[in-house]
Amino acid sequence: MIEAYLFYFFAVTTVLLAVTVVVQPNPIGAAVSLVGTFFSLAALFVLLHAHFVAIMQIILYAGAIMVLFIFVIMLLNLEPEKVKLRTIAGNRLVQGSAALYLAGVIALAFFGWRQFFTQGVVANEMEGTIEAVGKLLLTDYLVPFEMTSVLLLVAIIGAVILARKPVE
């Protein structure tokens, strides 16, 4: 019972803070709202018994990535922009396909799920602890796990090359 109340509370805060991110004119305000969204999502992960993912969400997303965002916003010294919510990018084809895609996603979410998931409740309990997830990460997913280090190295080199001053 208490779990259901907690779910509804954190679901509502997640969605409301996500809306704030999108409609906020000030980039710093949007970044702070995004940190709040990530904390609420971490709470939802805890409700799903994914403890390791929740901790990584707070350390990586709300910590590292958002500090990077706020650092760049402060570095560029941006002033708030006027939000015009009626401007949609792209031509008719892009708008039409985006609208069609959204309609499909919503229709699938509201009508199609019953065919795909006949039972929505937990079959047997499985805790997403560091031990269980880490064991899976270093046995079945060892090769992709090692590949991500190459990806991060490429990203670091790319970021440095992109952001440095052009050599005359």
Binding site: I65, L68, L151, G158
Partner: peptide
């Protein structure tokens, strides 16, 4: 893995922004 890709994407994206 999505976390790692998001971190890489943020680093490269913010480099492009600068």
């Amino acid at each position: 893995f999505v976390f790692i890709i998001a971190a890489a994407e943020a680093a490269v994206g913010l480099g492009i922004v600068i």
